[in-house]
Design a binder for these strands. Structure first.
Length: 1014
RNA sequence: GCCCUGGUGGUGGAAUUGGUAGACACGCAGGACUUAAAAUCCUGUAUUCAUUGCGAAUGUGCGGGUUCAAGUCCCGCCCGGGGUACCA
């Protein structure tokens, strides 16, 4: 319909376009010119050598995926860009770089499927991302660009890894130190007096140390190194063929791809992030991050205070050590539970329980993570047959094994206090164990039904703890435990060391080779260890990682001897843990960044990115920064002073509903047999009817009949030669449909049939006019067919509109579904703003000629100055608090007022162009140059706000009675409280409202409000 | 379950320190211009009642409370979003 209209009106439209072209806002031309100018003048290049104060604004490192950017990605990029541009106008030297997190699984999965080298895939994806970013007018200094897969970059990732490898964490000095220090301590006095972060507590003398052979020494040191190799339980993902870190596993499946994850014991490189647990936790108090983000990290680190406590197992041959945060409930212990993986299980199990326990341990260990998690509610366990002695009561208590106890946390054993721990309670109830109460529960609490886990109340039935409050009891219990040598007060963390090796090709090689079976670091001077070419991106036949395929990839020492390298590579997060430092000095071949550069740029002032990185990247990059700080390599402990998480822009997915039908047919010759032909008709029903079917289970008879008639008729129409008896509806299939085919929930049916040829003969009930789809708000993703790219929006409205509209949508941190409703408001704003420079706000029809650019040099009025300075102030404040949506409104208000005033004066408009330039840089650049400036608006200064233009001498007081506003009263500003009260009460309006009521009280807040209480 | 968030017109949202709730924009309705449409401009637009005008009452998820005054603070619920989960 629209097309035919265009044809009919073609001549008119052409005329319209020509006559409007000169004065109208032609964003295509404007944006092309401005971007060309910035490239030609290299406008975004930033120097490390500047007298100006620095400011560092960073976007989170993107992993360039094959799908390109969708409209959700730019939200953060635009916000940081506006902020950077603003800071530049305010006289800062702003570092605002961009680069690529280029190693990672998707490119490698693609390589496995297609054989295309991940480097090629990655490059293509980067090119696409970069062109989209440039289209958005982002002010990155591309001269600082790099990707993590460049050897020149990963040389330094490897360098930091070696540094971690050669370090241990001294809990006395609370920092990382060279491993040589530890070795010399071992040589002097063995482990005595050493307080180190380690895997397990070790005890040996100096002589013993010296007697260790080389292999043993290496093994011992791995117990202390910050990058270490150990036999460990890992998250193994068979489909991806690699291990995953804890934060890469969600709900028992891999975060990328959603494949099941198993637990597997294997040799594994890890980073000892747990050594930094306390500092990672405390550091949170020093940074300006959102409370939810800090909370997420706090929970992930999971600090808990408590005590260790030893229980002698019958005979005294073995001891079970448990960790508890509730030593005050020790008198309520009725059993002990060991994790299935706990070594003691095999040792203490009695002969008669052996078979059952072994069977149980085996099944528990073989469970996948998923099974373990879904079966959380199911209680399971076995009695080992052994008894422990209660250290305070001397009573015998049974030792059980149960998979609700985790091997990796605490000591892998818990004391069962069923009355005051819900998990112990479930266990005791299931196996019929005693539930004695030892903390007074609130009135009416049925301890047999539910445990009382609360941390308030008094101890009862608890020997020396009787009568004490929980808090005091915990203190005293720990004291007593320590006095008796049964254990000591202890802090435990939930945080685990981070698995660092990946059985994968597309990552940084780990610069380690194996000399006589001993993992040996390469020398720093030999870096980078480059990724070798290989023939296939899959594991070898013997199950080694892909790198083992590389021929002639061997470490050669001076004597010409060859050793094989480590075959695993680093995980995706290795490069991103320090990448922000490289931007400061990206081409430095001698250091990861020069001291001067680091000292000048310091840490990130504003970091913007998604909240999904809370427990991954954001923790690792704090960890690496602290490590580098310990060696004096960076002068700060926290990488990012301020962090803002932009909300997710969700997609709106559309659905169509296909009836599942069965048609029965009668054939002449088969008479009277009824057959079901292998023919089908596709009938789609609108959302409204689907809802009725899905919620009511049965349709109203009339509608049901109608549908069947419809199907039957359509079948006849499609297969006229078949003798149909009838159609039955057996169900509804919900199908996703690409949102490009849907507008306001209405389906474009010709387009649909074209895009999905399988449905080219489909029918729509009741007719093809106005078929309404269902919709749902979901994450924007290719697989959900709900992706909107910025490209389309920009083509239609231009970059400046796109930028301002994304900001106008709402607060930066808030998530919201994408919708273009309202984009015309922003577009109109820019057009009207443009017109202000052409028509002085009036429609000039006098000449009948296209208007020309014109601004008046006449001096501004007080009102005009007030509008300007109000806006200058508001925009500045809003940008500083990242409230970009209100800033956009402020521009609109300002424009409305200027149009009202018919103001086109240079002294007003010129400063406004500068204010607008961070938001809509292209139109600002064009107007700036039209205003006669030869240099770019990027080099301008943000206009100075002058309070004097805003000074008023009256204030319009809202006068309220009992809190309800009744009328306004304009009064001079300089009145005293008493005078205000007097004038208000004397006013006619007040008299009307007071009538004969008595005034109890009058509240006057100068320049705010007057409230009269009657 | 626990932790963190949020809940305001038909819609997106504003109200920054307890002080005029609904800025700004979309949408919608009416009008001007036009042969007509588009575009543009003007007017109105929380709800209910009243309507000739003046107006009145209600109103920020629900129920209480503090206060001269509560979207904002306190207590108890309900709902949505995110994180996390046998972490002893």
């Amino acid at each position: 319909m629209f097309k035919s209209w265009i044809r009919a009106n073609n001549r008119q439209i052409c005329f319209f376009l020509i006559s409007q072209a000169i004065m109208d806002y032609n964003f295509k031309e404007i944006e092309k010119n401005a971007q060309k100018k910035w490239v030609d003048e290299d406008s975004y290049r930033v120097s490390n050598d500047s007298p100006l104060p620095k400011y560092y604004v960073l976007d989170m490192f993107p992993y360039p995926s094959g799908a390109g950017l969708h409209v959700g990605h730019p939200l953060g990029y635009i916000a940081s860009d506006i902020f950077s541009r603003f800071k530049r106008l305010k006289g800062f030297n702003v570092l605002h770089p961009m680069g690529w997190d280029a190693f990672g699984l998707p490119a490698e999965q693609y390589a496995i499927q297609t054989g295309q080298h991940p480097a090629i895939t990655t490059k293509n994806n980067i090119d696409r991302y970069k062109s989209q970013m440039n289209m958005l007018g982002l002010s990155y200094d591309w001269s600082r660009e790099y990707k993590t897969s460049d050897p020149a970059f990963y040389k330094w990732t490897q360098w930091i890894f070696l540094k971690l490898f050669k370090s241990w964490y001294n809990n006395k000095t609370k920092k990382a130190e060279p491993i040589e220090n530890l070795i010399s301590k071992f040589e002097e006095s063995g482990t005595t007096g050493i307080h180190a972060a380690c895997g397990e507590e070790m005890n040996f003398s100096a002589d013993e140390w010296k007697a260790f052979n080389e292999k043993k020494k290496s093994d011992v040191l791995f117990n202390y190194r910050l990058a270490y190799l150990s036999e460990a339980w890992v998250n193994w993902c068979p489909q991806l063929g690699t291990v995953l870190a804890n934060d890469e596993v969600k709900d028992g499946v891999s975060e990328r791809g959603g494949y099941p994850v198993e637990r597997k014991l294997m040799p594994q490189w890890s980073l000892r992030i747990t050594a930094y647990a306390e500092r990672l936790l405390n550091g949170l108090d020093t940074i300006d991050w959102s409370e939810s983000m800090k909370e997420a990290q706090r929970n992930w680190i999971g600090r808990s205070e408590g005590s260790s406590l030893e229980f002698k197992v019958e005979g005294g041959k073995y001891k079970v050590s448990v960790f508890t945060t509730r030593p005050d409930t020790v008198f309520g212990v009725t059993f002990i539970t060991l994790a299935p993986e706990n070594e003691l299980v095999g040792k203490i199990t009695t002969a008669d329980r052996k078979d059952a326990v072994e069977e149980y341990v085996k099944t528990a260990k073989n469970k996948t993570e998923r099974e373990r998690q879904t079966e959380v509610k199911k209680v399971s366990g076995e009695f080992t047959g052994a008894y422990a002695i209660h250290p305070f009561t001397g009573k015998e208590i049974p030792v059980w094994v149960g998979d609700y106890v985790l091997a990796g946390y605490g000591t892998g054993a818990v004391m069962g206090v069923p009355a005051h721990d819900s998990r112990d309670h479930a266990f005791a109830k299931h196996f019929g164990l005693d539930i004695p109460i030892v903390i007074e529960a609130p009135e009416g609490w049925d301890i047999l039904k539910e445990s009382y886990d609360g941390k308030t109340g008094k101890c009862i039935n608890s020997g020396f703890l009787n009568g004490l409050d929980v808090k005091d009891a915990i203190k005293l219990a720990i004291e007593e435990i320590e006095n008796r040598g049964l254990g000591k007060g202890k802090v435990n963390f939930r945080l685990r060391d981070a698995a660092f090796g990946r059985q994968r090709y597309w990552g940084e090689p780990i610069p380690i080779y194996y000399k006589n079976g001993i993992p040996t670091p390469m020398d720093e001077s030999e870096l980078p260890l480059e990724l070798p070419p290989i023939d296939k991106f899959q594991p070898t036949e013997t199950g080694d990682p892909p790198l083992a395929r590389a021929t002639d990839w061997k470490y050669k020492d001076k004597d010409g001897k060859e050793y094989h390298y480590e075959y695993t590579t680093m995980p995706g997060w290795a490069g991103s843990s320090w990448y922000y430092l490289r931007y400061m000095d990206p081409n430095n071949a001698n250091e990861f960044a020069s001291k001067d550069a680091i000292n000048y740029w310091q840490n990130i002032d504003l970091y913007i990115g998604g909240a999904e990185h809370a427990t991954g990247h954001l923790l690792y990059f704090r960890f690496w920064t602290k490590f580098l700080f310990d060696y004096g390599l960076v002068p700060f402990e926290e990488p990012a002073k301020k962090l803002v998480n932009q909300g997710m822009i969700q997609g709106v997915s559309s659905f169509v509903y296909k009836l599942r039908t069965v048609c029965e047919e009668k054939r002449e010759n088969d008479n009277p047999k009824i057959i079901r032909p292998n023919l089908d008709i596709e009938v789609f029903i609108p959302e409204e009817i689907y809802k009725q079917i899905s919620t009511k289970e049965r349709l109203p008879d009339r509608l049901d009949e109608e549908l069947i008639d419809f199907c039957t008729n359509k079948f006849k129409q499609l297969y006229p030669t078949h003798k149909l008896i009838s159609c039955y509806i057996i169900g509804v299939q919900v199908l996703r449909v690409d949102i490009s085919l849907v507008k306001d929930d209405f389906l474009n049916i010709p387009g649909f049939k074209k895009m999905y040829p399988a449905f080219k003969n489909a029918f729509f009930f009741p007719n093809e006019e106005n078929y309404k789809c269902g919709h749902e708000v979901e994450k924007m993703s290719k697989s959900k067919y709900n992706v909107v790219t910025p490209d389309d929006v920009i083509a239609q409205y231009g970059t400046d509109t796109m930028r301002m509209y994304e900001m106008f949508l709402g607060p930066l941190e808030m998530s919201k579904p994408w919708s273009t409703q309202g984009i015309s408001g922003v577009y109109n704003f820019l057009r009207k703003f443009w017109k202000l420079f052409y028509t002085s706000g009036q429609l000039s029809v006098v000449s009948g000629q296209p208007e020309e650019f014109f601004v008046s040099d006449e001096g501004p009025t007080a009102t005009e100055l007030k509008v300007l300075h109000k806006t200058i102030k508001k925009i500045e404040e809003d940008i500083e608090r990242l409230s970009f949506n209100t800033a956009v409104s402020a521009f609109m208000i300002c424009l409305n007022e200027l149009i009202e005033l018919k103001c086109n004066k240079r002294e007003i408009l010129e400063p406004l162009v500068i204010c607008l330039s961070p938001f809509a840089p292209h139109i600002a650049e064009e107007l700036w140059s039209k205003l006669g400036h030869s240099s770019s608006v990027l080099k301008a200064s943000y206009p100075k706000f002058e309070e004097k233009y805003l000074i008023e001498n009256t204030f319009s007081y809202p006068v309220s009675f009992n809190g309800k506003t009744r009328f306004m009263l304009e009064l001079p500003l300089n009145l005293s409280k008493e005078e205000i009260e007097k004038q208000v009460l004397a006013s006619e309006d007040a008299q009307k409202w007071v009538k004969d009521a008595t005034i109890k009280k009058v509240i006057v807040v100068p320049n705010k409000i007057v409230n009269i209480v009657v």
